[in-house]
């Protein structure tokens, strides 16, 4: 059974957190953000995570905590917040009513655009640029989701405890890269390659990564073909793959 608290962490940091990358990758996303002044939206989830998305000059940035946000969206439980993502819950701000227009006219279309990339229809994926952006966003979502599962999910925590300290590079050749920084049984995800990785898992192509993320191929099966490069502390990657399996459990 899906743990709602873990799912809330994934939905906030991994899914909504990918808005950062969407604004960088798709000019249409930046164009949706017409506000002149920076606006920040805080998500405060009882018994779960909290974070603030700040929109400025067509860019987006996520930080932990709600601090001094312009709009605050409180959720009484992780289930309620997860309902926001699956469209069954409509949020009511506790602060920032003056910015309702931004929420409705800019933020909502932005999240709709994200959904278009994250749950693409097969026709859209035939467009090379759409495919690249969609897979890149999926890559970042998965990288951050791995960390959330490692730190919150019961099975994920057991697996994370087996990972020795150090940076893991997960990357696509000529594409995006992420650092999964393991320390004392916890993992932090950074959306850039590590300078000094202790283990590397690199996908040969964006198509291969897509097939892996879509569950069409298995990482272990693909190693023999040489299309996935693994080196360094292989035990870290072995356990990383178990966390990767668990991502599908939450995001399928």
């Amino acid at each position: 059974m899906v743990d709602q608290r873990t799912l809330a962490y994934i939905n906030l940091y991994a899914v909504l957190g990918t808005l950062e990358n969407l604004c960088e990758l798709d000019p249409a996303a930046g164009a949706l953000l017409t506000n002149k002044k920076p606006i920040s939206i805080g998500f405060e989830i009882k018994g779960g995570p909290s974070a603030t998305l700040t929109f400025k000059n067509g860019r987006c940035r996520m930080e932990q905590g709600v601090g001094d946000c312009d709009v605050k969206l409180p959720f009484s439980s992780c289930e309620k917040f997860n309902g926001l993502l699956d469209g069954t819950v409509t949020p009511v701000p506790s602060k920032g009513f003056a910015h309702i227009k931004f929420l409705l006219k800019e933020f909502t279309p932005l999240t709709d655009l994200l959904a278009k990339y994250m749950r693409p229809n097969p026709e859209d994926l035939k467009d090379e640029e759409f495919f690249r952006i969609s897979t890149t966003l999926m890559f970042y979502t998965i990288a951050v989701a791995i960390a959330q599962i490692a730190n919150n999910d019961k099975v994920g925590k057991f697996t994370a405890n087996l990972i020795v300290d150090g940076d893991i590079e997960m990357s696509i050749a000529n594409g995006p890269a992420a650092t999964l920084r393991a320390k004392n049984g916890r993992i932090v995800a950074l959306k850039r390659a590590p300078e000094n990785p202790r283990a590397i898992m690199r996908f040969e192509s964006i198509q291969l990564a897509r097939d892996l993320f879509d569950g069409k191929i298995n990482a272990v099966a693909t190693i023999g073909t040489g299309k996935i490069t693994m080196k360094g502390m292989i035990s870290m990657l072995d356990n990383l793959n178990r966390l990767l399996d668990r991502v599908a459990f939450y995001l399928a």
Binding site: N218, V220, I223, G224, G226, K231, I234
Partner: peptide
């Protein structure tokens, strides 16, 4: 996996 288990390239850690 082509060759599965410890004799195969994945579990056998054939790097590269």
């Amino acid at each position: 996996s082509g060759v599965y288990g410890h004799l195969g390239p994945a579990e056998g850690c054939f790097i590269p």
